[in-house]
């Protein structure tokens, strides 16, 4: 491909702490991500996937190694250009939503445009369009604490999309969601992938990864597996086999349970992240149902 990749990472190393307490979170990661790709990064907790994601989103700086977005070297940018980069090129979706409290959904989605210097009228139109894309037209004036977890995450996705970034990064976007909300968010991501958006997503759930075109597995801060599931310029695998969708939804609960068991097995004694939905998640599931 002649055009430079959206992301090019070379020899990325990140270390925390000093001396004996030093932890190497990333041990030289090389990665190219093409435009329009849908990449899932998998790995047990402590494998360095969140660290990688934070560096890709320009939220953290690597200890060494280079990182280019659209051909420009992020390490050489000053604070101001970095802010512009975060604003225009990258959309970030967090596991814990990270909406600003006491601001309506609309205001939250408008925020990146405000910092991007877009005028009020256009801002509103684009924010409403983004909220429509995630199916929240009827919730625009609700504040985060009036929304269910799934709705909050969809607002966060709308916020990440509203600046039309080259790259959408999602750090375990479904980690705090119940199954129905997970399905909503993943469907939105599938649609975005079809429309040509580049997506990088972190997950430790196999059936979330199954929907990506490419799966990268990290172990102890290094890439151990890079598997392509669908061509870059085609639709994501999930949408090529359309008929499976309904059955999957029906089997969701059982699948969840299986997945949780499997995850525990995968992670072994080192795995510390609770994979099964805890009581909090059940609550939010009920909330989600009630809000509907």
């Amino acid at each position: 491909m002649s055009a430079p990749p959206v992301l090019r990472v070379r020899g990325l190393v990140k270390e925390y702490g000093e001396g004996d307490a030093r932890v190497r979170a990333l041990r030289g990661v090389d990665l190219d991500i093409e435009r329009g790709d849908y990449v899932a990064i998998m790995g047990a907790s402590g494998s360095g996937k969140s660290t990688l994601m934070n560096i890709l989103g320009c939220l953290d700086v690597p200890s060494s190694g280079t990182y280019e977005i659209d051909g420009s070297d992020v390490g050489r940018l000053d604070e101001r250009r970095l802010a512009i980069l975060r604003n225009r090129r990258v959309g970030f979706v967090f596991q814990s939503f990270n909406l600003i409290p006491r601001m309506s959904a609309l205001a939250n989605v408008e925020l990146p445009l405000v910092y991007g210097g877009i005028g009020q009228a256009e801002r509103r139109a684009r924010a409403l369009a983004a909220l429509e894309q995630v199916g929240l037209t009827d919730r625009v004036h609700h504040e985060p604490n009036q929304l269910s977890g799934g709705q909050q995450q969809r607002v966060a996705v709308a916020r990440a999309l509203v600046t039309a970034p080259a790259l959408l990064l999602a750090d375990e976007p479904t980690g705090n969601l119940d199954t129905a909300s997970t399905e909503d968010v993943l469907e939105i991501l599938d649609r975005l992938s079809v429309s040509g958006r580049t997506i990088v997503l972190i997950t430790h759930e196999n059936d979330v990864a199954a929907r990506a075109k490419r799966v990268i597995r990290l172990v102890d801060g290094a890439v151990v597996e890079d598997r392509r599931q669908a061509p870059v310029d085609g639709p994501p695998p999930r949408l090529s086999g359309h008929d499976r969708a309904d059955q999957d939804r029906a089997d969701q609960d059982r699948a969840d349970q299986d997945r949780a068991d499997q995850d525990r097995a995968d992670q072994g004694p080192a795995g510390q992240e609770p994979a099964e939905p805890g009581p909090a998640n059940r609550d939010s599931a009920e909330d989600g149902a009630a809000a509907r």
């Binding site: 604070e79 101001r80 802010a83 225009r88 925020l111 990146p112 991007g116 600046t163």
Partner: peptide
């Protein structure tokens, strides 16, 4: 959050 979505210093 504001910085992550591109608020300049």
């Amino acid at each position: 959050i504001r910085k992550a979505i591109g608020a300049p210093r």
